[in-house]
């Protein structure tokens, strides 16, 4: 059952996931090639100095991409469900709606994690050649905040898209914008070090939000 439910989600999202993986990996490669070019032109020590003195991250270019891809994946996955209330078909399956909702969200989170992991591995391997491990982990640990924001934006999009009324949908959008803002307060590497576990817990809890929308959909809430 899990496999077949994931198959449905896969059919909806496969081309998007491919495009997202290629784009994010492409951006990651581009940034790393740029880093290599600077190393060749000015020497590695120049980069190290900039990192030490100016808190430079060198990967700022991708900071919004996870959020954008999270939102897009949510739309690709849930808009077809809401088209002519197709979600009724899914919720009519002989599986509890909380399980169905969590499995759908689980698929999205897994797919996004895969896309993000690919980009993360590219950054990690290429950065490790020219930067000290401390620098690499400092920069990449900050990128985890963006990836986590990407996953949360996906969960929020699912919640917003399934919501049956426009009034509440608007409230959900406002709530989502404010909550995502927290992930972009600082671009200093390591600044989220202590906050990350709380943000991760919040994101895990946010995976239940789509269940709230499904429950409202099921009770037929209207504007």
């Amino acid at each position: 059952m899990l496999r077949i439910l994931f198959l449905k989600e896969y059919i909806k999202t496969r081309w998007f996931i491919l495009a997202a993986a290629l784009t994010l990996s492409g951006f990651s490669l581009y940034m790393m090639m740029n880093l290599y070019r600077i190393v060749n032109l000015k020497g590695a020590m120049h980069i190290w100095e900039v990192i030490l003195q100016k808190d430079a991250l060198f990967i700022d270019l991708i900071q919004w991409l996870p959020v954008i891809f999270g939102i897009l994946l949510g739309l690709f996955q849930y808009v077809p469900e809401m088209h002519r209330k197709c979600l009724k078909l899914t919720l009519h399956l002989p599986v509890s709606y909380t399980k169905l909702g969590m499995l759908m969200v689980g698929y999205g989170v897994a797919a996004l994690t895969g896309v993000f992991l690919l980009s993360f591995i590219i950054l990690w391997t290429m950065m490790s050649r020219v930067l000290m491990p401390e620098m690499v982990s400092n920069i990449l640990s900050h990128s985890l905040v963006w990836y986590l924001a990407g996953i949360l934006s996906y969960l929020f999009t699912a919640w917003i898209t399934i919501e049956p009324t426009w009034k509440r949908r608007l409230i959900n959008i406002i709530v989502s914008v404010f909550m995502l803002k927290i992930f972009f307060i600082s671009n200093v590497a390591g600044s989220y070090y202590a906050f990350m576990p709380i943000l991760a817990l919040y994101t895990i809890a946010a995976s239940t939000l789509s269940i709230l929308s499904i429950s409202r959909f099921k009770t037929g809430v209207q504007d």
Binding site: C86, K88, L89, H92
Partner: peptide, 13 residues
Amino acid sequence: GLLIEGHVQYQFM
């Protein structure tokens, strides 16, 4: 068995 108005089915399949 449920038939939704307009014979709605998963269009993407």
